[in-house]
Design a protein around this nucleic acid. Structure first.
Length: 203
DNA sequence: GGTTCGATCCTCT
DNA sequence: GAGGATCGAACCT
């Protein structure tokens, strides 16, 4: 049985564009009673600061995005398009809005349950997208604000360090905003990994 | 109180 | 590649 050891808060209190690629290779762990579901992070996106037009924080602090303005190491989970949830980890310090969207996982534990939650799609599609991985791990707004540094129902556990040479980046997916927001290469992923979301993979 | 629309995904063409 | 699903937050009036 694998021991899942949560990453400390200090991990998230660094510059968001440093934390984002560092999350690749770490694990998202979801506990459902006795059962443990887990996946290796293979794709993320950074949303940083007051003026990132792609970020929910760009229009100021609201009840929805308040967590982004809070301390690091907590989950910011929101409901989107009437049917999906997205999981973010909050970074940096209080009163500065920053978070990292978890976009894709490679399932590593509880795969049978994840398959079932996803309706039996091929394994490479179980968690290959932000909405999909929330389905696969049974993540919804009831987990919004949970402390990801504590070994509870949802946390991030230490994995292996991803070699720099295996990390690729690109512009972010599905965002709107000014030229800067559209062109910023703030999507990070494991190059050529089979469990990525379906998008162009330029380096 | 009404309208708009989204950090998505699936299905159909 | 286009369109629909489906609903709550945000932003009007």
């Amino acid at each position: 049985m694998t021991v899942w050891s949560p990453l400390p808060r200090e991990f998230y209190e660094r510059d968001t564009l440093t934390v984002a690629p560092s999350l690749l290779g770490q694990y998202i762990v979801r506990r459902l009673g006795e059962q443990v579901l887990a996946g290796r992070i293979v794709e993320v996106e950074a949303y940083v600061g007051f003026h990132d037009q792609a970020s929910h924080a760009s229009r100021g602090k609201t009840s929805r995005n308040a967590l982004m303005f809070g301390p690091a190491g907590y989950a910011y989970i929101y409901f989107i398009y009437g049917m999906y949830h997205c999981l973010n980890v909050v970074t940096e310090h209080s009163e500065y809005p920053a978070a990292i969207l978890i976009r894709a996982l490679e399932p590593v534990a509880g795969i049978e349950e994840m398959r079932s939650l996803r309706g039996g799609v091929p394994d490479q599609q179980i968690a290959s997208g932000p909405g999909k991985l929330c389905q696969a791990l049974k993540i919804d707004r009831t987990l919004n604000g949970i402390d990801l540094t504590q070994p509870g129902a949802l946390f991030v556990a230490a994995g292996e360090v991803m070699p720099l040479g295996k990390i690729c980046s690109s512009s972010r997916v599905g965002v709107r905003g000014d030229e800067k927001a559209l062109s910023a290469p703030w999507r990070f992923f494991v190059c050529h990994h089979p469990h990525l979301s379906k998008h162009n993979q330029r380096t």
